[in-house]
Amino acid sequence: MLLIYCPYCQVERAETEFACRGEAHIARPADPSQTTDEEWVEFLYMRDNTKGIAAERWRHIHGCGRFFNAVRDTVSDNFLKFYKAGEPKPDLEALAKEAGK
């Protein structure tokens, strides 16, 4: 069971308090009517399903209820960074390097 840090509560808690909500930093287009069908399909369905370092959305659903983002190595399950929703996407390569990968 993963150990997850909530950047809002600033505590580590067991995975059972959280829900994973998939890939992070997929913004809903500000004016969807201006998107092409291909762009909209990309937004709706296309995900990287990364093997390795990936940014994901998590929600502290049985805690504060807040959404936040986390960078996880999907192979080792190690988390490299937790940050609040709205903060910019970190440099994943730099994080991977830092973690000694």
């Binding site: 829900a19 929600r59 959404f67 929703a85 709205g86």
Partner: peptide, 13 residues
Amino acid sequence: FATMEDYLQTEWP
């Protein structure tokens, strides 16, 4: 409820 929270927190904060 979860969907509403999601849009409110992450798309329209």
